[in-house]
Design a protein around this nucleic acid. Structure first.
Lengths: 340, 340
DNA sequence: TAAAATATCGAGAACGTTATCGCAGTTTTA
DNA sequence: TAAAACTGCGATAACGTTCTCGATATTTTA
């Protein structure tokens, strides 16, 4: 067994008695090379199991066929589904994806961005952890000529393509659904204020209240982290208020799940006494009891679309930034049913 | 804005009036270069925001600092947690991970393996989709001198390092737990037979039965897919049998969840009438009602350990294959409680 | 004080591709 | 039938690093 000498164009050229340049040409287009030699090259390639050296190709072409994906976490339904969507279209177009997980840490996001090997990456797909710290590290990537596309958690201040769900409309639909079901004292357990989509969902919440002439209670809007525990803690706070809400709109399903578990522990009948609605349509929302009404996010489509857009940016350097906003869909389940 | 001319060593050398070789040396070890020039290089690097060209480095060093990860899916708790573990240690050691999702398709796994750019990858981490189709495509990678480490779903026929949980012992513990709780007619809804860990868990199941002198009923072992729907379907089959089991050991939590939902739909009291135990400790097992007893898998540790092992293989080419088997832990919840 | 050792650096090749140019033959054009 | 165009191919220079081999200048040794 040879100590890792991979077959190169030179090997093929030597075996066939032709030049490296001809082999290279034969492997790409039929242009400027006869059918005969092309075929002989192709069979030799199969025989020796030649694999192109992407380092060398990248060096001369300034193309790597890699795209970097930077996101906060992958251990939840939404993001893992988005990645699958990204992977799907990337793979279809012969692109590899290089994964970078920030773990919701802004500092780590900055380090990752600063250290990104721009020379071996054709583009970057980002979902930011927070917008509060300025996004210079991402702007810098763009300034270096590497296209960046945002998905889900976008940076408002940066001018580039963005793909997201319609957070405003989804939230509006969710809250209006609660109102139609007869809930009037609607709380919102929200996410970190630094994120654009948090603000958008809050805006949808407020607009729905206003449209139906329901007074807004500042105390009923709580900002905290995105996880289940925070959802539970927020709910606890709401329950201990003198003026207790009769419905909870959670910024995502994980917080809604936290809310449901807390309500159950407190012996409160969900739906009848307090309605709960989430956002995402995480599979857990169909499994939990009572099942959770939620707004489905088009996670897979967001992944595919953002990757498509990035590839378009890569192929045409002067592509105009585009904002794609995909619609969600209300899925009514038990947690907002008053009769049961 | 320059049209994507990234700063190179040559730029730094020109600005400082020294040679490229010296700059290159200054950036790696202090060896053979004075403190003075080294410092001037370092400040210039900061000033111009130089980033090394990994293509060029890879070309000359035959090192890419990339590792490929090939796995069936990422949209579940177990695998996404494993990846996070991989990512964690890879990042710590300045390695990037390139993600390849097979979507449980053996054909796609083969294509991915055949097309893997061996020249720009230092090692491969694999969890196979199925072992039935021979693993020549993976053996070939090893034959080309690129180290491969298996995790979770290992290929028995290939001689290389493997990291997995103790499936046999975990299954044994699970079934013994059922027996201790008084269940006697224990069914096993299992996974595809082609996978090593399916067989191991089956073996644990059988050994536990034998140890406690419980007769084995062939009809109560059902092989099907890994998802929730299959779990439901399997349970349906079990319920329609004349000799109905009083407990179900599911090969993983997703199938156990399917079982629980079906049992609930049928109005069967879980725990009292039929006990259910899973495997993984997916977060959903704590959320579902009744909560699911399960065997916790050390997903994150598996990711970290397998990556560590791969890095060791990469650094020392003659590293001896190692099999690491991590222990799981029983987590008792409501679904195996007879009194409630 | 000459010889030897050391410290610091530069020139040039190499890694495996692709791109540019040019050079023979062969075919087409006028 | 000479000129022009085309066809197929090879030589060579890039791409941005690192490595090998020397070449100086400085210091140490005997």
């Amino acid at each position: 067994m040879n100590r890792r000498h991979l077959v190169t164009l030179k090997d093929i050229a030597r075996e066939l008695g032709i030049s490296v340049a001809t082999v290279s040409r034969a492997l790409r287009d039929t242009y400027d090379v006869s059918e005969e030699t092309k075929n002989s090259v192709l069979t030799k390639v199969k025989e020796l199991n030649y694999r192109p050296n992407f380092n060398a190709m990248g060096l001369v072409n300034h193309k790597s066929h890699n795209i970097a994906v930077i996101l906060p976490t992958i251990t939840n339904y939404y993001f893992s589904t988005v990645i699958t969507g990204i992977q799907y279209t990337a793979y279809k177009n012969a692109y590899n994806i290089i994964l970078h997980v920030t773990g919701e840490s802004p500092e780590r996001e900055i380090t990752i961005a600063k250290e990104l090997p721009l020379s071996s990456i054709d583009g970057v797909l980002v979902s930011v952890t927070s917008e509060s710290n300025k996004c210079d590290h991402l702007q810098e990537i763009i300034d270096n000529g590497v296209p960046v596309v945002f998905f889900d958690r976008v940076a408002e201040s940066i001018k580039t393509s963005k793909v997201m769900q319609n957070d405003y409309e989804g939230a509006f639909t969710a809250v209006e659904h609660l109102i139609k079901r007869g809930y009037r004292k609607i709380a919102h357990i929200s996410g970190p204020f630094s994120l654009a989509f948090t603000k958008e969902r809050l805006r949808g919440y407020l607009t729905a209240l206003k449209k139906h002439k329901i007074p807004f209670n500042q105390n009923w809007v709580i900002h905290s982290e995105f996880n289940q525990e925070s959802g539970g803690a927020d709910t606890y706070k709401l329950l201990s208020m003198r003026d207790r809400p009769d419905a909870i709109f959670a910024v995502n399903d994980r917080k809604a799940v936290g809310a449901i578990l807390t309500l159950k522990k407190k012996g409160i009948r969900i739906g009848q006494e307090i309605g709960v609605i989430g956002f995402t349509n995480d599979p857990v929302s169909a499994i939990i009891s009572p099942s959770l009404t939620t707004v489905e996010e088009p996670a897979s489509a967001i992944g595919e679309k953002s990757c498509e857009l990035l590839l378009k940016h890569i192929s045409k350097k002067d592509f105009i930034p585009e904002e794609v906003i995909l619609k969600g869909k209300l899925i009514a389940r038990e947690s907002t049913s008053r009769t049961s």
